[in-house]
Nucleic acid binder design. Structure first.
Lengths: 152, 152
DNA sequence: GCAATAATTAGAATAATTCTAATTATTGCT
DNA sequence: AGCAATAATTAGAATTATTCTAATTATTGC
């Protein structure tokens, strides 16, 4: 597996600072949790995992931490239909594949040109800050439900 | 503007029938509302518009009708981040552009090849039933807030 | 025309997220 | 170091979109 960009405690603190945010134990642990297991957990799932290390954390704080990390571009939000928001620490340009049967989400790496090609379809005067590409479907090969990993 | 595929009352009834669903006045009106103004309304907005014509309709029925129409592929659902689901009667392959300032959503037509090109990025054994592409950003030219239309 | 099935309705229930107000922690200044 | 200002955390209440429930109404096939 390609080692994905991740960030030391110091760097995290710096990135937060650049956005006018503070580094806190809660934010570091939440970030760690996302890096450790890249299975696109929901806020609730993050909450459960963080509680194992820091039992006093509250759900509101988890939401706050996730928002902070999104704000300074250390993680991305992923939304499938009506489901709860999921969080993704993969910052490479990539799409998401959502398995309708298992509910799992996989990262799909994209070749460099294709996002630009998509943006080129926009009429004059449309300034894009973000593109999201999501596939919905089934995967033939069944994977272990608990250990999801980056496809490709 | 390109005349988008739409369907007569009879055809609607047939399409519903093919999916084991019945045509009802409520479903026809809901479909009409979506065709009349293609601004990607939420279920609540559809509810408000339909009530003008059929004041006794309930919100649960609106949800039911929208679900029925989605099921027989007469309309598509569109989701932006945490916002409520929006509904779209444009069945051409297209992307969506969500204006972060105005909250408006525009259709972006896509050239035929590009969706296939994206699907080609998937590893073996990934069967796609649907691809969604969404842009987030701002539009330079301000449009009248109440009359959205298909871009391009 | 009647039984079976499906759709509608109003309102209750649920799930995810956001808000609120009080408390705690951190930072920058002197 | 001490203190005011600012930011983050917490628990729980509130909100929002959606789904569910149970009763009623409409439609279809025989």
């Amino acid at each position: 597996m390609i080692p994905l960009a991740q960030v030391t405690s110091d760097a995290l603190s710096q990135r937060l600072g650049e956005s006018g945010l503070r580094s806190t134990p809660q934010r570091e642990i939440v970030y760690d949790i996302l890096i450790k297991r890249r299975d696109h957990p929901t806020a609730d799932e993050v909450f459960a995992r963080v509680k194992a290390e820091l039992p006093t954390i509250s759900l509101a704080t988890v939401y706050n931490c996730l928002e902070a990390l999104v704000q300074c571009n250390l993680i991305r939000q992923v939304n499938f239909d009506r489901g709860p928001t999921r969080y993704c620490p993969n910052l490479h340009p990539h799409a998401h594949f959502h398995d309708e049967v298992t509910g799992s989400t996989y990262d799909i790496d994209l070749p460099p040109g294709i996002v630009e090609q998509l943006k080129a379809q926009l009429p004059e005067g449309y300034a894009v800050s973000d593109v999201e590409i999501m596939f919905r479907g089934k995967t033939r090969e069944r994977r272990p439900a608990t250990v999801e990993h980056t496809a490709r």
